[in-house]
């Protein structure tokens, strides 16, 4: 449910519940995207020097 749904009510239960949910999803999304970005960045910077850094 999104806050613009007509069923949405501005009350603590909605804020806490949906807030927690979006917080968790957001955290996961950011973490994964951060890793994707880092991987792409690694590739762009030193893609030529082959696979020996790990």
């Amino acid at each position: 449910m999104f806050p613009f749904a007509f069923e949405w009510i501005n009350d603590p239960s909605h804020f806490v519940f949906m807030g927690g949910f979006y917080f968790a999803l957001g955290g996961l999304f950011i973490a994964v995207n951060y890793c994707v970005m880092r991987a792409l960045f690694d590739w762009l910077c030193k893609g030529g020097e082959n696979h020996n850094e790990h």
């Binding site: 890793c35 991987a39 590739w43």
Partner: peptide
């Protein structure tokens, strides 16, 4: 492959 490898590393 370097991209999945560094992706896994960062994960």
């Amino acid at each position: 492959f370097s991209v999945p490898r560094s992706f896994a590393h960062h994960l």
